[in-house]
Amino acid sequence: MRLLEDEQQTACCNGFLAAIKSLWKDHYSDSKHPIDNYELIDIAVPNKDCGFHMIMNAQYWDGRSMSHFNENDMSNIHKILTYKWLKYEENDPAWETILNLKI
Results as ranks from 00 to 15, higher is better:
L23Q: 13
N72Q: 15
I80L: 12
N100E: 15
H53Q: 01
Y38M: 09
F16W: 13
L23S: 06
S75G: 13
N47R: 10
M1Y: 13
F52N: 04
H78M: 02
E39K: 11
D49C: 05
D42M: 09
S31I: 10
A44M: 03
I80S: 09
I55W: 01
I41G: 01
S75A: 14
Y28A: 10
L23W: 05
N70Y: 08
D62L: 13
N14V: 03
H33G: 01
N72L: 15
T82N: 11
I80N: 07
L23V: 06
W61K: 03
N47F: 08
N47V: 04
T82K: 10
K21Q: 15
W85I: 10
I35M: 09
Y28V: 02
K48F: 03
H68N: 13
N70F: 11
G15Y: 06
S31Q: 05
N37E: 14
D30K: 13
L40E: 06
M74P: 00
H27I: 04
C50N: 06
S29I: 14
R2N: 11
N72V: 07
F52G: 02
M66S: 07
I35W: 03
D42N: 10
L81F: 08
I77Y: 01
N47S: 13
I35E: 03
E96Q: 13
P46Y: 04
L40A: 09
I103M: 07
K25A: 08
T97P: 02
K32D: 04
C13F: 05
T97F: 09
D73S: 01
K32N: 08
L99D: 07
G51D: 00
K102Y: 05
I98A: 11
E90V: 06
Y28R: 13
K87Q: 13
P93Y: 02
W95M: 14
C13Q: 05
N72W: 05
A44Y: 02
M1A: 11
P34D: 02
E5P: 02
H68S: 12
V45N: 00
K25F: 03
E96L: 12
S31M: 12
F69E: 05
D42F: 09
N100M: 11
A58C: 15
E96D: 14
T82V: 08
F16G: 04
C12G: 07
E96P: 04
W61G: 15
K21S: 07
A44T: 04
F16V: 04
A18S: 10
H53N: 01
C13A: 15
C50D: 07
E89Y: 11
N14P: 00
K48I: 01
